[in-house]
Simulated scan of single mutants.
Amino acid sequence: MQAIAYYDGKIGAPEELMVPFNDRVHFFGDGVYDATVGANGKVYLLRDHLDRFYTSAKALDIHIPMEKAALGELLTDLLGKVDGTTHFVYWQVTRGINDRNHVYPEGMPGKLWVMIRPNHLNDPDVPIRLVTAPDTRFYHCNIKTLNLIPSVMAAQDAARRGVQETVFHRDGIVTECAHSNVSILKDGVFYSHPNDELILRGIAKTHMIQACYRLGITVMEKPYTLDDLRAADEIIVTSSSNFCLHACELDGAPAGGKDPGTLKAIQDAVLQEYYDYTGKTSVLD
């Protein structure tokens, strides 16, 4: 074969295999991978790569559906079916198949993927050219990317703790939640993290801020601290499917509940916009 693919027990050409729509990799980038070269029927440094692969999966609570030795045998067997003498050997495991939800069923079986194709190694005697760029790989929270593994893990941890959301922070500054924005009320002023590369600009949050302006509530889009969060009169969590929730507990301690009047005014204004737009009369139906 020119190239070979494997998915959950099925083997074929890469263009032939079909992946279920609800494989979580499609929604969350929810998986881990490893890769190496193959030469003359041998997967190079197979044990080292398998050790790293299983370590990565364990760190994310992903269950690989076969033991390490069996996977090594599978990779070697598949490699022997591909034309050529030098190959690119790639494999990954996704968390599995389930309806789209950040929280996943505990212990769900993962789905194994393999792809092997002919390849060649570059000549080490031929020099290459380089450029430099700032390392911003962890500063793209403002992009609604499919790579949501940190949010998935935070949401799952919250579910295990019996709470509904996780608030992220950097260097003591509150940013956002695992899949929501978080804002606070203090002394009648609405505070929210500015729309920069550290948070996703929430549509629901934006409309809530507009509601505050209509209500004459002062809005401060500026960084605030964990201490500010703990001392807030109200903590407000917003997303496109939960417009204006409020918190009663933070890290096991009571939170909010000190400015219900302002909170209710904001909630009413946000919900009224929803009702006017959709013709609905309740968020519960």
Rank of each mutant, 00 (worst) to 15 (best):
Met1Phe: 14
Gln2Leu: 14
Ala3Glu: 15
Ala3Leu: 01
Ile4His: 03
Ile4Tyr: 00
Glu15Gln: 12
Glu15Phe: 04
Glu16Tyr: 03
Leu17Cys: 06
Met18Pro: 09
Val19Glu: 03
Val19Lys: 06
Phe21Cys: 09
Arg24His: 04
Phe28Met: 07
Asp30Asn: 04
Gly31Lys: 00
Tyr33Phe: 14
Ala39His: 06
Asn40Lys: 14
Leu46Ala: 13
Asp48Met: 10
Leu50Gln: 09
Tyr54Met: 08
Ala57Thr: 05
Leu60Pro: 01
Asp61Lys: 00
His63Ile: 12
His63Asn: 15
Pro65Glu: 08
Met66Tyr: 12
Ala69Ile: 15
Leu71His: 03
Glu73Arg: 14
Leu74Trp: 03
Leu75Thr: 03
Asp77Trp: 07
Asp77Glu: 08
Leu78Lys: 03
Leu79Glu: 06
Leu79Tyr: 09
Thr85Pro: 10
His87Asn: 06
Trp91His: 09
Ile97Glu: 07
Asn98Pro: 00
Asp99Asn: 14
Asn101Trp: 02
His102Asn: 08
Glu106Tyr: 12
Gly107Arg: 05
Gly107Lys: 04
Pro109Asn: 08
Pro109Thr: 07
Ile116Asp: 08
Pro118Glu: 15
Leu121Trp: 12
Asp123Cys: 09
Pro124Gln: 03
Asp125Val: 12
Ile128Trp: 06
Ala133Cys: 03
Arg137Met: 11
Asn142Ile: 08
Lys144Arg: 11
Lys144Cys: 09
Asn147Ala: 13
Pro150Met: 08
Val152Pro: 06
Ala154Trp: 01
Gln156Thr: 13
Gln156Cys: 12
Asp157Thr: 15
Asp157Val: 14
Ala159Arg: 07
Arg160Asn: 11
Arg160Cys: 11
Arg161Leu: 06
Arg161Ala: 14
Gly162Ile: 11
His169Tyr: 07
His169Ser: 13
His169Asn: 11
Arg170Ala: 13
Arg170Leu: 15
His179Pro: 03
His179Val: 02
Ile184Phe: 10
Leu185His: 01
Gly188Met: 09
Phe190His: 08
Phe190Cys: 01
Tyr191Asp: 02
Pro194Asn: 04
Asn195Asp: 12
Ile199Val: 13
Arg201Asp: 07
Ile203Asp: 02
Lys205Glu: 10
Thr206Arg: 13
Ile209Cys: 05
Ile209Glu: 04
Gln210Leu: 10
Arg214Phe: 00
Arg214Pro: 09
Gly216Gln: 10
Tyr224Arg: 02
Thr225Gln: 01
Thr225Ile: 03
Val237Asp: 10
Val237Tyr: 00
Thr238Ala: 09
Thr238Arg: 01
Leu245Met: 13
Leu245Tyr: 11
Glu249Pro: 00
Gly252Leu: 09
Gly257Ile: 00
Asp259Glu: 14
Ala265Gly: 00
Asp268Asn: 15
Tyr274Ser: 07
Tyr275Val: 08
Tyr275Cys: 13
Asp276Lys: 07
Leu284Trp: 14
Leu284Tyr: 14
Asp285Ser: 15
